[in-house]
């Protein structure tokens, strides 16, 4: 699945096309204790049409605030936001017709059946009765809602409810689908299922924009990622590009007495793909620009020098390295102070 997502990226990036979402100089602040809290401090973004685009950042980074502005739920203090070719500030009603939204809290009406939810949603978008019924059948089939869609949504499991909520977001075939932390609280199986659904939507031409604080969701699901922290985009690009900026770390443990560590480290340091090689206790640590080709070169060199190796470990760069480098903190530790959390939620 990761492979096909990556292939999709190259295909789509190459084909170019206009932006589904364009954000320039977006600012938003909220009243808070001791003055206003700046949730967004000048965000610039361009989301290419037909891709899965991820907003990655810790809680309170401003992801949800940005999403709420893009979906007409909040008004920006400053900046320009164009969604599906329309200015959100001046044409919110027209934007609403072209977008779908699946909020963090879902929004299924738990006192109604799944089918009733779908039909009402379609009709509120101005679809005719028969058209809506047909579309509801289609979504029930596609998202596998059939076993429970005639039951009251109150009785659904978390995964069933989330599937209904995604269906609600796409009843009217929106150009752009927004999802706020769509896999929060889902078990791994439901999570994988939702990823597949979102990929299928993308492949059918829908632009999907989601927020997440999960590294793997940004990395493996998204075609492009904007890393957001403290109300600013700190890095943007395809996951491969972003990770590619940071070295892979290889730790080589030679068999004791089989090599002169200092000499081997010096040799490794002269390899073209090696950024740095240093001795760390009984091991040599090597920072590589490219893990795959770099590893091959290292092994060739070690064999040529007759160095017997006891163990090798490789740590490839992750988006967390990008976050760490840009913000000085690890994404795993970077929670927002409680005041910011309250605003974001």
């Amino acid at each position: 699945m990761t492979g096909s997502a990556a292939a999709g990226t190259t295909r789509r990036t190459a084909s170019g096309g206009e932006a589904a979402v364009r954000v320039t100089g977006l600012r938003k602040s909220f009243p808070g204790k001791g003055g206003r809290v700046e949730a967004l401090r000048g965000v610039d973004l361009s989301v290419p049409a037909g891709q899965i685009y991820g907003f990655l950042g810790p809680n309170g980074a401003g992801k949800t605030t940005a999403l709420r502005i893009l979906t007409t739920l909040l008004r920006a203090d400053a900046g320009e936001v164009v969604v599906a070719g329309l200015d959100v500030g001046s044409h919110p009603a027209a934007v609403r017709r072209r977008i779908g939204y699946v909020g963090q809290r879902g929004g299924a009406d738990i006192e109604a059946t799944g089918r009733e939810n779908l039909v009402l949603q379609g009709r509120l978008y101005g679809m005719g009765r028969h058209e809506t019924e047909r579309r509801a059948d289609e979504l029930i089939e596609r998202l596998d809602l059939a076993p429970f869609c005639e039951r009251i949504a109150r009785t659904y499991s978390g995964g069933q409810r989330r599937r209904l909520e995604v269906a609600l977001g796409i009843v009217h075939r929106p150009d752009v689908l927004f999802l706020d932390e769509p896999t929060l609280g889902l078990d791994p199986q439901n999570r994988a299922n939702l990823w597949d659904q979102l990929r299928r939507l993308r492949d059918a031409g829908t632009t999907v924009l989601l927020t997440t604080h999960y590294l793997d969701e940004a990395d493996r699901l998204s075609d492009r990622v904007a890393i957001i922290d403290h109300g600013l985009v700190v890095a943007e690009g395809t996951p491969e590009e972003l990770r590619g900026r940071y070295p892979a770390a290889v730790t080589i443990t030679p068999r004791p007495g089989f090599a002169d560590l200092a000499a081997v480290a010096a040799l490794l340091g002269r390899e073209p793909l090696v950024r740095e090689a240093r001795i760390d206790g009984e091991t040599i640590r090597v920072d590589l620009d490219s893990a795959t080709t770099g590893m091959a070169a290292i092994f060739a060199l070690l064999r040529a020098r007759g160095v017997e190796v006891q163990g090798v470990s490789l740590r490839e760069p992750s988006l967390d390295d990008v976050f760490l480098h840009e913000t000085g903190r690890s994404l795993r530790d970077a929670g927002a102070p409680p005041a910011m959390e309250a605003i974001a939620s």
Partner: peptide, 12 residues
């Protein structure tokens, strides 16, 4: 709390 109002507010 269940997000229903938010969902309806994003519809036209």
């Amino acid at each position: 709390e269940s997000g229903v109002i938010e969902r309806l507010r994003v519809t036209p």
